[in-house]
Every structure is written in C-alpha cells, then in structure tokens.
C-alpha cells in the first residue's frame, strides 16, 4: 500500500472570527476520485482554496506525496503538481484548441520567456496526443472561443493534464452542463486520472455525477466534516439526508 497522495490534517480557517472550516482531515490515494459535497456555505470552496494555495489555513497541515505544501503560493503548488479546473470555463479565446494545449505545455516546461522561434511547431506532437486523449483532435485547428460548452470542459481537462499533475482539483466541474454530458465528462476524467495515477478532488452539486463517479464522498456542513464513505454509505446516512440530500425528490431519488 503506497502512502496516500494527499494527506490533510486538522485544517482550520476563519473569516472575521467566524469559523468557515474547522478541523477537517482526510486523505486521497493515487488515482482516486474524491467528491466534496455539502450545502452552500458549508466550507467546500474554502477547503478547496486552502489545498490549492489561494487561501492560507489558520491551522492544520496539507501534505502532497509526503511534502508539506501548507500555505505555499498557488503558483508554487501548481509547480509541485497540482492542476486545477474552474467552475466557469476559462480558456484562451484568441488561440486555437491546439494552441491552448501548446500554451499549457510551454508553461509546464517554463519555456514561455522564449521570444524568437514561432509557437507553431513547438510540442505539437504532445499537444496532439493530449487532444486525442480527450477526443478533441478533430477540432484542433478551431478557435477555442467557438467550441461547444462540453468541448471547452474537455479542453480544460487536457490543459490541466499537460503539466502531468499528481493531484487535480476540480471546482464544480460539470456546472452548467447537460445531465448526460456531466456523467460522461467525469467518467472521462476518471479514466484518464486512473491511467495516470492522478488523484482527483472535486466539488459537485449534481448527485447523479457524485454517486456514479466518486470512489469516496466527504460531506461538509458548517465547516465540519460530518460524514465520509462510499456512495451507498452516504445515501444511507440519516444526518446527511436531513441537512443536504433532503427527501431526494428534487435530486433524483438519491
């Protein structure tokens, strides 16, 4: 049994004296998909941003492959192998799909200061391989700005994988997508992540996606971890039903 990829212990953070996250601990293995769910304002984003480095924890420790990354800057953390996708898609609209991935590869290799040789032929083969993996190769020459929404999400995934991340943070990765596309995107993520031994931590409101793709689920409420376990365990948890899942009538009977 290898050491877990990510170990979070005793994470705390308060805003203006109000605790937003209190004593949150969890681990995440290589190739594992872990979903973070909970009501609005439960501390999901705060937890997420502390792992990604956007927020500094008041207390607690975050270890990535044994290395303490607590409180490092987002760019340092990214450099250590933490990739990220955003709730609202963000790609480079003035570039083609291929150029978007080339840019991510150039950034990953710290080659962005080069000012002479044109980008056109740089890392083209590797970009093609990544596009192939997410199924976008046929659209490589189109401007990213005119891609369909689901394709943009897949482009973001390809860009996040360019740096060969050890850990992928996905903030509401399927927000705004059609139900069928949602599960498909996360299953693609799952396939690519387990093949590359990438650990994935994601937040999500769509219970169909959570229950069909997550290996384990963490439930936060008022900044505290109130449950963790597999889909069936979480579904059966009375407390989770009360504060989050409700009767299940509006969320697919989960």
């Amino acid at each position: 049994m290898p050491e877990p990829r990510l170990i979070v212990t005793g994470l705390r953070r308060a805003f203006g004296g109000q605790p937003a996250v209190s004593d949150v601990s969890f681990t995440l293995d290589q190739g594992e998909m872990l979903a973070l769910i909970g009501p609005n304002g439960a501390g999901k984003s705060t937890t997420f941003n502390m792992v990604g480095g956007q927020l500094r924890p008041d207390a607690g420790q975050i270890r990535l492959d044994g290395r303490d990354i607590t409180g490092l800057s987002p760019r340092r953390i990214a450099g250590l192998g933490v990739g990220r996708t955003f709730q609202i898609t963000a790609t480079f609209g003035s570039m083609t799909v291929r150029e978007n991935v080339q840019m991510a590869l150039l950034a990953a290799r710290r080659e962005f200061w080069r000012a002479w040789r044109p980008v056109r032929d740089q890392h083209a083969a590797e970009a093609a391989a990544l596009l192939e993996a997410v199924g976008l190769l046929a659209q490589a020459s189109r401007p990213a700005a005119i891609l369909a929404y689901g394709d943009l999400k897949r482009l973001e995934l390809a860009m996040a994988l360019a740096d060969k991340p050890r850990l992928l943070l996905m903030d509401e990765p399927t927000a705004g997508m059609a139900p069928a596309e949602r599960v498909a995107l996360m299953q693609l993520t799952r396939r690519l992540a387990s093949g590359r031994r990438v650990a994935v931590l994601f937040t999500e409101h769509d219970m169909d996606v959570v229950f069909s793709t997550a290996d384990r689920i963490l439930v936060l409420n008022r900044g505290r971890l109130i449950a963790s376990g597999t889909g069936p365990q979480i579904r059966a948890n009375q407390q989770v039903r009360e504060i989050y899942l409700g009767t299940g009538q509006t969320s697919g009977g989960h």
Partner: peptide, 14 residues
C-alpha cells in the same frame, strides 16, 4: 432556479 443549490433549498423554492 434550482441550479447550484442544495436539495433542501430547492425544496423551499418549489
């Protein structure tokens, strides 16, 4: 109106 809301809130909107 239900996008991005916890299921319990969705029930109140309903």
């Amino acid at each position: 109106p239900s996008e991005g809301l916890a299921p319990v809130i969705v029930e109140q909107i309903e």
